[in-house]
């Protein structure tokens, strides 16, 4: 009897969980913490729609944007939104719809999925909202199909990854085996980075002996790296699609006693990898200047709104950051 009663509670609990996930997230107030003031036509309102603000990279991006707005408060209002779960596309679609309802002038978006958010963005554009795509590029084929025009401002992930791959290749010789630890397979930037790493490996004649997804996570990448190191004793390098996973891989290499023999590369240049770059355990990483990215997107949006500029895609710089061992 007691069981069945608590069983019900569990079901209710699960429903609450589901409900909690689908409930639209609260909007974040503007940079100064106060709710956004009523619309003034003179001052355009720009919505920055991010992926998870809990992710370091997007956190940095949002902070950069807030700092920019604070410095130029007279020019525009900013609404920053992030999702609870990085891969929850439907949550981001809800956010887009809410921003349209709030009558923002422009949406600057880092899409959670390069295809699934396009219909929602198209509706926004039809409602007269300017759409600027940052970070992760929207799928060109789908864009064409739907007729959405969205300016892209962002780094070339493939190019960045290729630079990292080339830096690793310079330390190796043709025929050496390397492993790839990829991000979430469905994410566009993960795919781009994998392609870039492949390009570099191919050009230098390296052999990719294994490729698995570490889901962007340190712990998972660590487990995979450890397994790959065991299975392929002759492995020369592990190329990771972000720095978190690179941290996990470095730990696995150390645990296997192969520091210095197996090279590791990352992507993103987060603060946590700086000591590893300094002591040589991480060979290289790539800086795509995340803090500038949102700002560039906002600047572009403002320029187009003020008709200072005609809509055109812009690639932001990606720079190789070399550690001690690479120099």
């Amino acid at each position: 009897m007691r069981r069945s009663a608590s069983g019900w509670l569990w079901i209710v609990g699960a429903l609450v969980l589901v409900g909690g996930c689908t409930k639209p997230p609260q909007e974040q107030p503007t940079a100064d913490g106060k709710p956004a003031p009523p619309p003034k036509p003179a001052k355009p309102r720009v919505a920055l729609v991010m992926k998870s603000l809990a992710n370091e990279f997007f956190g940095t991006m949002a902070e950069g944007a807030k700092a920019h707005q604070a410095a130029a408060a007279g020019r525009y209002d900013l609404v920053v939104n992030g999702m609870r779960n990085e891969t929850d596309v439907s949550e981001q679609v809800t956010l887009i719809e809410q921003m349209v309802a709030r009558k923002v002038a422009a949406i600057v978006i880092a899409p959670a999925d390069s295809k699934a958010v396009i219909p929602a963005l198209k509706r926004a554009a039809d409602a007269g909202v300017l759409v600027v795509n940052i970070d992760n590029r929207l799928d060109p084929a789908v864009l064409r199909e739907t007729g959405l025009e969205a300016v892209f401002v962002g780094p070339d992930n493939r190019e960045g990854a290729r630079k990292a791959g080339e830096a690793v290749a310079r330390q190796l010789s043709a025929g050496d085996g390397v492993a790839l630890i990829e991000g979430i397979p469905t994410a566009f930037n993960s795919q781009q980075r994998s392609l870039g790493l492949e390009d570099a490996a191919m050009a230098a004649g390296l052999v990719i002996v294994d490729r698995q997804s570490g889901q962007w996570e340190m712990e998972k990448a660590n487990a995979i790296a450890a397994a790959v190191l065991t299975e392929h004793p002759a492995l020369k390098a592990i190329l990771c699609a972000n720095d978190s996973m690179a941290l996990g891989a470095v730990a696995a290499v150390s645990a296997a006693g192969k520091s210095g023999q197996v090279l590791v590369s990352g992507f993103d240049n987060v603060p946590a990898v700086q000591p590893l770059l300094a002591d040589g355990r991480l060979l290289v990483t790539v800086d795509q200047h995340g803090d500038r990215l949102a700002v560039e997107g906002i600047e572009t949006a403002l320029a187009i709104l003020n008709q200072e500029k005609s809509p055109a895609d812009r690639t932001t710089p990606v720079d190789l950051v070399e550690g001690q061992a690479a120099r």
Partner: peptide, 15 residues
């Protein structure tokens, strides 16, 4: 234990 093994603390750990 986990931090010791990875040498770093990941705020996303344990999802």
């Amino acid at each position: 234990f986990a931090v010791a093994r990875l040498g770093s603390a990941d705020p996303n750990a344990g999802t």
